[in-house]
Nucleic acid binder design. Structure first.
Length: 575
DNA sequence: ATCGTGGGCGCG
DNA sequence: AAAGCGCGCCCACGAT
């Protein structure tokens, strides 16, 4: 049994390396509970939210604890606004999702609706720093402490420690997501505007279509013989195309590009420009860039594979075209780094496929695949490898996959086995133990029905198709999910190293709590952008490289797999 | 008016 | 109209 809590009135600092559970106590108060090694309460401190920030800063400086919080997404923005960074946390919401679904232990966490992220509008409606727990008879920390103890039990039951690593990395990701939003990606609206005008043409003063776009639109309408055609309507456009003998089944660019007809060139031009205008035009710039910063919302663990999702501003879809608008502040620079072919490298290491790891040596894995003799050209290597990870069965890609089975049997066995499990309705897991969700009941019922004696052939065919779809999902899950884990550790290790750097000589004007320090500014699956003082560019670049090496070692130990970075130090993020 | 859905396209 | 995974966002359009 845990010891009874000691209520302290003095704000004495907890022991070094301790864990502190934070809970809301109503009326804006915060309760901080220091936990012992056995997760019992050692001390309890009640703080007014007005004094809370200073107290956290003091505790961070003296004892560097791991803060046990409900969710960084919910509480960290307000701390960052007061320039109070948290260094280490255990994020109960993020870890709940992992520990609930994991297949790595015999007894995973009991699922609970109380530990799901709240809908964003609900979140906004709660003004307090922490949850306000209404029923005052209940100890406000009880629920959090119970959940934390349960999570600790699951983590401890994983004897190889992978879940511990995953939860620590995931929690760090929760902090980093909020820090990157607070810092923002330095964005030059003048350069963005220049690109828009250069591409779309000048913007008419009274609103309406930019000139270059209007020219394309007029040409399309001319060739289709309809001066009033609305080009954004697929159905109307399709009918108009059919009228002039362009017999396509859709208006997608890949199908149109097969056709020879004078309308095609201006139509493709129009579509390209229309996309840029609607997705990242002047309206986007006004809505999403303020004070020279683009601040998307990152959602760690937002994809079941563990990848991050995003909300607002389409952060994960910034077109290459606009990358020159990502521009460092004066006296600062960008460190832009990405990994080439991260996923097949993860596959080679996970499967301990030495032949594939050999192909992965150096910068270009596809060149290595060609050198192995599996395929003739780099292009074929690319299609074969992607097909292997995505489950291609037909077309150029599907035709090439069997060649890889001969050369890389271990790697192929790993993904083939993941696919088989998925088709059978089973669960697959990443390197660190994030597991795929079970198929929904509708899927299971469909499979069960199709397996019965009375199943009609159409039903069987449809069920088979759904089974293969799920197989492709689980096939990809293990690879994409493990790549997400590599990236998460990479991020966390970069952040740890950047924290060791001294303050900047020149403050960045708009980086909020990071105006004086090198910081992560953007993350996209296998790429990071750092915004750093010029004098620290080399140190930051080393941090990024060292972090990558650590991520690889943490995931795969001594297995020899290259994960080379393409790293650039420059004023813009141009590729 | 508002919502859900599908086409289409950008990113990895 | 994609062969082959994972996303978010915009638009039109039909249902409510």
């Amino acid at each position: 049994m845990p010891k009874p809590p000691t209520t302290v009135t003095s704000k004495e600092a907890p022991a070094s390396g301790s864990r502190i559970l934070l809970a809301g106590a109503g009326a804006g108060d915060v309760i901080a509970v220091e936990l012992g090694a056995d997760d019992s309460e050692l001390t309890r401190t009640t703080l007014r939210s007005t004094e809370f920030g200073d107290w956290v800063r003091e505790v961070e400086a003296t004892s560097s604890p791991r803060w046990v919080i409900r969710s960084a997404r919910e509480i960290y923005p307000r701390l960052l606004a007061a320039s109070v960074p948290l260094v280490r946390t255990h994020d109960l919401l993020l870890c709940h999702a992992i520990l609930r679904d994991t297949d790595a232990v015999a007894r995973p966490l009991a699922p609970s609706a109380d530990w799901l992220p709240r809908a964003p509008d609900v979140e906004v409606a709660v003004p307090a720093l922490f949850d306000v727990i209404d029923h005052s008879s209940v100890d406000p920390i009880a629920e959090l402490l119970e959940q934390y103890r349960e999570q600790r039990r699951v983590i401890a039951s994983d004897k190889n420690g992978r879940l511990a690593l995953l939860c620590a990395a995931e929690s760090a990701g929760g902090l980093i997501a909020e820090e990157m939003r607070a810092a923002g990606l330095p964005w030059d609206p003048t350069e963005h505007d220049r690109i828009l005008v250069e591409t779309l043409g000048s913007r008419p003063a009274g609103g309406g279509m930019p000139s270059q776009m209007a020219e394309f639109a007029d040409a399309v309408r001319f060739h289709l013989g309809d001066p009033h055609l609305h080009l954004d309507s697929h159905t109307k456009l399709l009918r108009a195309l059919h009228r002039v003998g362009v017999n396509v089944e859709s208006t997608s660019q890949w199908e149109l590009s097969e056709i020879t007809h004078p309308v095609i060139a201006p139509l493709l031009g129009y579509k390209k420009l229309a996309r840029l205008l609607s997705a990242n035009g002047w309206a986007w710039l006004t809505e999403w860039v303020h004070d020279g910063r683009f601040r998307p919302i990152y959602i760690p663990g937002g994809v079941v594979t563990g990848r991050w999702a995003s909300a607002g501003g389409g952060a994960l879809q910034l077109p290459r075209m606009l990358r020159p608008a990502v521009r460092a502040d004066p006296g600062w620079t960008l460190v832009v780094a990405d990994v080439a072919q991260l996923e097949p490298r993860m596959l080679a290491a996970m499967a301990e496929d030495k032949a594939m790891a050999e192909a992965a040596r150096g910068r270009d894995l596809y060149a290595g695949v060609v050198a192995s003799g599996a395929v003739a050209t780099r292009e074929e290597a690319k299609y074969a490898v992607l097909g292997a990870m995505y489950g291609a069965t037909t077309g150029d890609s599907g035709r090439l996959v069997p060649r890889l089975r001969k050369v890389y049997p271990r790697a192929m066995r790993l993904v083939d086995e993941a696919a088989r499990k998925g088709e059978d309705g089973g669960v697959v897991s990443t390197r660190l133990g994030r597991s795929s969700p079970l198929p929904d009941t509708e899927w299971q019922e469909q499979q069960a029905a199709a397996a019965g004696d009375a199943a009609d052939p159409l039903e069987v065919k449809r069920a088979r198709q759904r089974a293969r779809e799920r197989g492709r999902f689980t096939r990809n899950f293990v690879v994409q999910g493990t790549a997400a884990e590599w990236s998460l550790i990479w991020l966390a290790e970069i952040r740890y190293r950047l924290r060791q750097l001294p303050e900047a000589a020149t403050a960045a004007p708009a980086s909020g709590p990071f105006a004086n320090s090198a910081h992560l500014a953007f993350f996209l699956h296998d790429e990071v952008i750092l915004h750093v003082p010029e004098e620290q560019a080399d140190a930051a670049a080393s941090a990024v490289r060292d972090a990558a090496a650590v991520a690889t070692r943490r995931l795969f130990g001594a297995f020899p797999i290259d994960v080379p970075l393409d790293l650039r130090i420059m004023q813009t993020a141009e590729k």
